[in-house]
Amino acid sequence: MSERAQSLVLGVLGFALLIAAWEICARNGLVNPVVVSSPSRIAAAFARQWASGDLATDLATSAVEFAVGFGAAMVAGVAIGLAMGLNRFVEYAVDPFVWFVYASPLIAFYPLLIVWLGFGFATVVTVAFLLSFVSIAVNTLAGVHAVDPSHMRAVLAFGGGKRDLVFKVVLPASVPHILAGARIGLGRALHGVVLGEMFGSNDGLGYSITRYAAQLKTADVFVPLITLVVLGVAINQASGLLEARLLRWRA
């Protein structure tokens, strides 16, 4: 068996063992199935939420919030990172604020966001944006710093302007760093969507989790929860593949 196939088989086996052990414990009363739930109960809850359309609605809401929040973070992150990288004074002046946004538990500000932006969509998108844009900005900055100065000199020597410098040298050369930042940013944006929905919204997967938990419907809690875990893994895998594809020319 090839190494790849072996790791795949064992990985699936790991999940299967967990699910089997859980189901057996629940059936034999080793754990309370009402509190802890069980794979079969979760499967039933999944079918129920899928048939009623609740899951699809939650998923669509969260996906749109995620896309808007991360999209805005990508644009703002690259722009801020570029501005910092191209001008030392901008970098020094903006740096402390970037650090504050990165280091503080931003969700604490959710009540202020709700007053400003209203309950729901705009607040959730803003939390996702705030959590996500810093890692993109910081990585873009690192990318600009890593640009080979001889390439810049070449553009200038052949009569290129500042515009050419940015779009023909700095941005393309920063792509690997920007992508690395975007990958971190994707995870943080998903985290932001869930946080925002739990505290500042009545829609989406994050809100569903809190609602079902408050009703002590444990099996139903697992449905949006597992959906989020799968979503997180899928986003991570997809961005990894995209990164590899985009960076092929560097190999």
């Binding site: 509190v35 802890v36 995870g187 998903l190 985290h191 969507v193 869930v194 946080l195 739990m198 997967l205 994050g206 989790i209 809190t210 079902y212 938990a213 408050a214 002590l216 444990t218 809690v221 697992f222 949006p224 929860l225 989020l228 875990v229 997180g232 893994v233 986003i235 991570n236």
Partner: peptide, 14 residues
Amino acid sequence: TAPLIAFVPLLVVW
């Protein structure tokens, strides 16, 4: 890769 905070309501139940 999953948002950890999503597990919190469950942990509170448990």
